[in-house]
């Protein structure tokens, strides 16, 4: 559906994307996560034909810059959703979408019947966010690009948005979303990529960064220092009596646990295997290096 190979993008001599390779198929939800400024939104802009790029980016085998007709079935929501304020939500939907066959079904799933016929001028930020997701999903029969789709949504709206995205996935669309709500988005995604400094790591690649992150609080600082010295290469963070360590290797992890058991510690917390955990491990290991 969408493939990129050595995708690059620079703004005023600053390289934002440095050879991103990504692949997503129809019927998949793919998440792109990363710190602020890591290039997530830039990636979506390139895919939406809104920015030029180097390397290769193909949607159904066609470049959105060279052959923009491929974008006719691509739904886009980038940054804050913007619409014509003098029109109603439904009029905006008609204006921006070529095929409205799924509109009514999606309106019901997202639960926006109450305000879809009101002028956008009267909408709150959350309402606009919902209209943004709706417009992208209705238009994007093949591909839906969503930048921070869950921003400003309450808990119930989040559930409805999840249901809508899942319906899109089942209808055969490919969805690519970026988000800082890693735990929520991670659970929704079939696959995810972490962007760091314009480069990308697939979720399969991230396994090598290890599955375990431990946050340990010792009774005294000397004891903490001794453990930190012993497992120096695994330390992510350290303050007087508290430190964090991450392990890629199972043998090293067991050695660490044995070492801890012989010391006086107040607490040991292990993070679960979430996107957030992996992201944190990657970031902290990198900082420690």
């Amino acid at each position: 559906m969408i493939t990129t190979s050595k995708l690059t993008k620079s703004y005023r001599k600053k390289d934002v994307l440095k050879g991103v390779d990504l692949e997503a198929e129809r019927g998949q939800i793919v998440g792109i996560f990363g710190a602020n400024g890591s290039g997530k939104t830039t990636f979506l802009k390139c895919a939406a034909g809104l920015a030029s790029f180097g390397g290769e980016l193909l949607i159904d085998g066609r470049s959105p810059v060279k052959d923009c007709s491929v974008l006719k079935e691509v739904g886009v929501m980038i940054d804050v959703p913007s619409f014509y304020k003098d029109m109603t939500g439904r009029e905006n939907l008609k204006f921006f979408c070529n095929d409205l066959s799924s509109a009514e079904q999606y309106i019901k799933i997202l639960g926006v019947e109450d305000f879809i016929d009101k002028r956008v001028r009267t909408y709150s930020a959350g309402m606009r966010q919902k209209l943004g997701i709706l417009t992208a999903c209705v238009k994007g029969k093949k591909l839906v690009l969503l930048d921070e789709p869950f921003n400003g949504l309450d808990v119930l709206s989040l559930d409805k948005a999840d249901e809508l995205l899942d319906t899109c996935r089942k209808s055969g669309a490919c969805l690519i979303l970026t988000s800082h709500m890693l735990e929520h988005s991670g659970a929704l995604c079939d696959r995810y990529y972490l962007l760091k400094d314009g480069k990308v790591f697939k979720n399969e690649d991230l396994e090598k960064f290890g599955k375990r992150l431990y946050r340990v609080e010792m009774k005294d600082a000397d004891c903490a220092d001794a453990i930190v010295r012993k497992f120096e290469s695994n330390v992510c963070d350290k303050s007087a009596k508290t430190f964090e360590v991450a392990f890629e290797n199972e043998d090293e992890r067991l050695k660490f646990l044995n070492a801890i058991l012989g010391c006086d510690f107040l607490s040991v917390k292990e993070t679960t295997d979430t996107v957030e955990g992996k992201y944190r491990i990657m970031e902290r290991k990198d900082e420690a290096r």
Binding site: G49, C68, L71, N98
Partner: peptide
Amino acid sequence: QAGTAKLIYSSGENK
């Protein structure tokens, strides 16, 4: 200025 350019120029119509 209004931000609607994102939708207009990703609509699939030639710029």
